[in-house]
Design a protein around this nucleic acid. Sequence first.
DNA 1: AGTGATAGGTTCTATAATAGAACGCATTCC
DNA 2: GGAATGCGTTCTATTATAGAACCTATCACT
Lengths: 114, 114
Amino acid sequence: MKWDELDTNWCPVARAMSVVGDRWTLLILRDCFLGISRFEDFQKSLGVTRHVLSERLKRLVEAGVIEKHAYSVKPPRFEYKLTPKGKDLGPALAALKDWGKMYMPVRRQVQSEN
Amino acid sequence: MKWDELDTNWCPVARAMSVVGDRWTLLILRDCFLGISRFEDFQKSLGVTRHVLSERLKRLVEAGVIEKHAYSVKPPRFEYKLTPKGKDLGPALAALKDWGKMYMPVRRQVQSEN
DNA sequence: AGTGATAGGTTCTATAATAGAACGCATTCC
DNA sequence: GGAATGCGTTCTATTATAGAACCTATCACT
């Protein structure tokens, strides 16, 4: 199969990956679960480029995983919130969290010389 | 943060993604759970390029998620098997499977004109 | 002994995705 | 009339992935 045809795959895991399998997507959703909802906050939290963040949010909205709505019209300001479909990714994220806690111990980042 | 520094992140989900967050990796592991163990079989099952498959398997072995061992020396033949660490990704994959079943209905692939 | 098949890769080039910085717009604050 | 904030888009450079070809070792057949 091809990566951009995962949505028609027989396997439900593959179909799930067609929505949440791209780089950064699952971490954006983790941030949603932590209460983050604004573009700037996702960007600061993750360090993902604005370009990619914009593209991922658009995709997640299209897929019905999150919703975008204006919390202010003047000035125009938006927030992204999990839909029920998005909230139901909670168990998957929780399982990844548990696994990470168990098997991926925290290692201090090596400080650069400069 | 940067994608290749996820392993030092404070968040266990991010640290998990440092191992299983790359394209195709979670689907390779799904295949492992389905009993697939050989290079050729992963490749046929997923359609991933041999280059990427090789790289992902190497990474998963390094991370201790799967083990490579020879099941024949003459001719040299190998199989990849889940370690306990890898088997403990079962709940995460199961959660993704459930979510995919629930929210991503099977759609027939549109047939090409040619 | 030569030919083809099988398994497990590596190497090569072309294309697609991501990184990183800059820019644009609307609005508010000073 | 700046400067700051929030939410993006656009641009170029670098990295990752796709797709095909190639290599090695062995066996099976003729």
